[in-house]
Design a protein around this nucleic acid. Structure first.
Lengths: 112, 112
DNA sequence: CCACCGTACTACGACTGTCGTACTATGACT
DNA sequence: AGTCATAGTACGACAGTCGTAGTACGGTGG
C-alpha cells in the first residue's frame, strides 16, 4: 500500500529532477532551467536545494553521476552529468502514485 | 501575486486545521480524529505535529485558544479549544489559491 | 482490583530538506 | 575593464515533523 508522506514539494523536488532525467542525462544548470520552463516560470528551484538534492539522490541510488565535456569537441571543460538509475525510475513511479493520493487528501480540505 | 511555497503537506497541515476550525471551534484530539475521517483514514496527523502547529498558529495569529469544560454539565474537566481568527480565514483563502498553483506545477512533472 | 484503552495533552531532542550567503572559475559581450 | 551567463561548492541557520516518553483521568473487562 502506498504511504502518504508528509512532504510534497519538499519531497517532489526529487521527483521533478527524476522526471527530467527520464528523458536523458543532464546536469545541474540545465535541470534548473528546465524546471523553470516546464513550470512556466512558476517554480524556480534554488541552486543549493538542487545540488543538495543531487548528493542525496546519488546516495540513495536514484541517480548516478559522471563527468563529460561541455561541448562534443571536447576542449577540456567538464561538467557533472546525472543519469537516472532503475531504482530512480521505480521511485519516480511510486511518487507519481503517491501524488494522486496526496492530491485527493489535500483537496478534501480545500475550498474552490 | 500568489507565491508558490516550497512546502505542501508540510505547509498544508495548518490549512487542514483551519478548514476544520472554519466550521466551529475545536480541540486537539477532536481535530486529529476529523483529519483522519475527512481524509478517509489516509492521513493521520501525528500528535506532536498537531500540537506544535497550534503553538505556531497561535503565535501567527491564525487561531486563538480558550479553555472550556469537557462536557456542558461542567464538572471541572477542562479542554483547550481553538478558534479561527480573521487572519486565519485570510490565510486559509490564500493557501487554497496557492494550492491550485502548486498542483498545476507538480502535475507537469507527474506521469499518469 | 488492576490492567488496559481512549481521551487529552506536554516536553524534549533529533533529523531532514530548504535556503541565505558567499565564494570560485571560465568564456562571451559590450 | 566590467558584467552577464554558465556551472558549480561550502557552510551554517532554520522550520516543521516525528520519535519517544511521560502525565493524568475515566471507563470497561476479566
Amino acid at each position: 500500500m502506498v504511504e502518504i508522506s508528509s512532504d510534497v514539494i519538499r519531497g517532489y523536488n526529487d521527483t521533478m529532477i527524476l522526471y527530467i532525467l527520464m528523458k536523458e542525462p543532464s546536469y545541474g544548470y540545465e535541470i534548473s532551467k528546465q524546471i523553470r520552463t516546464i513550470s512556466d516560470e512558476k517554480y524556480i528551484i534554488k541552486e543549493t536545494t538542487l545540488y543538495s538534492a543531487f548528493t542525496r539522490m546519488e546516495k540513495n541510488g536514484h541517480i548516478e553521476s559522471f563527468t563529460a565535456d561541455q561541448d562534443p569537441n571536447g576542449n577540456g571543460k567538464k561538467r557533472t552529468y546525472y543519469r537516472i538509475t532503475d531504482a530512480g525510475r521505480q521511485y519516480y513511479r511510486e511518487k507519481c502514485e503517491e501524488w494522486g493520493l496526496t492530491k485527493d487528501v489535500v483537496e478534501k480540505f480545500i475550498e474552490q
